[in-house]
Design a protein around this nucleic acid. Structure first.
Length: 273
DNA sequence: AGTATCTCCTGCGTGC
DNA sequence: TGCACGCAGGAGATAC
């Protein structure tokens, strides 16, 4: 399930193989993703040179002279590079191939089809899906003063608050749970009740957990495949996620597991307040 | 405006 | 062995 670290890992893995190359063709075997893939996308980018591959939140941005392809992996999506001449047969749920002039094929696999492949003309950041996004969590714009100010008078639980992409992008369920545990803050705490000190440590822990995950190249979650086609090798220790009722790593008290906004939430009632 | 709920989809684990 | 069922999850859409 791609969270920001997996998307970034994918970006880094595939970029060297495709940036600077021209598009030979886009093959769409199934256009029914979260939104339909535009019918004319293939003709729009055919022959165009890929100028850069960047990321905004969990969106990959493929830059061409005329505009951008926005590529979101959704919850179960993965991209892998098939080297030139390696004619791997198409497996089920492999919905899209981006074929480059150098023979490299970028293949999209997405069983649950929550992903998206869309076109955005210039300026890309004014696109409806990007214009409202909050700062990148690893950027300097995301600091404790920002989080503190933004959370004032907000009654929403801090966990759903930091998972809101308008507040900050890229903090999914796994890392929200982990960062709140590391910060010693209870997920249910109203965002507006955070102290300055808590805002400071939470921002720090969010950055730490994401940066560590990127360093390690993604999670071990089972359907992640790295940009080089190898399985994810991320072995970051998860202290709370998936450990409901198991002992807290700090105090051994059984971890609480609750539902918040339809998402599994795990915390230690003794270590988080 | 802020907040909570619903929704898209398929694979997997569980219980009968 | 097979079925029904619940759950997982990003984030936009919708409803208060």
């Amino acid at each position: 399930m791609p969270e920001l670290p997996e998307v970034e890992t994918t970006r880094r893995g595939i970029a060297p193989h495709i940036v600077g190359e021209k598009v030979a063709k886009l093959v769409v075997r199934n256009d029914r993703l979260r939104w339909p893939i535009p019918k004319d996308l293939a003709s729009t980018i055919k022959g165009e040179q890929l100028r850069s591959l960047t990321r905004r939140g969990k969106y990959l941005l493929l830059e061409f002279d005329a505009g951008y392809v926005l590529w979101h992996l959704g919850m179960s999506g993965s991209l892998r590079v098939l080297p030139p001449g390696q004619q791997a047969s198409v497996q089920t749920h492999e919905h899209v191939d981006l074929c480059m002039a150098n023979g490299v094929v970028l293949r999209f696999h997405d069983p649950r089809r929550f992903g998206a492949v869309l076109w955005a003309s210039h300026p890309v950041f004014e696109h409806d899906l990007l214009s409202h996004l909050g700062p990148e969590p690893l950027s300097e714009d995301f600091d404790w003063q920002y989080l503190y100010q933004k959370s004032r008078k907000r009654k929403q639980p801090i966990k759903t608050f930091v998972m809101d992409s308008k507040v900050v992008v890229g903090v999914g369920n796994i890392y929200a749970n982990e960062a709140l545990f590391a910060a010693g803050i209870r997920p249910t705490k109203p965002a507006g009740k955070l102290t300055k000190a808590q805002a400071e440590i939470l921002v720090e822990e969010i950055k730490k957990v994401l940066a560590r995950a990127i360093e390690q190249g993604g999670t071990t979650l089972k359907d992640f495949i790295g940009g080089d086609g190898k399985p994810g090798y991320f072995a970051q220790q998860l202290n709370v996620y998936g450990r409901g009722n198991e002992p807290c790593v700090n105090c051994q008290k059984p971890l609480k597991e609750i539902r918040m906004g339809n998402r599994t939430t795990v915390y230690c009632s003794q270590c988080q307040s």
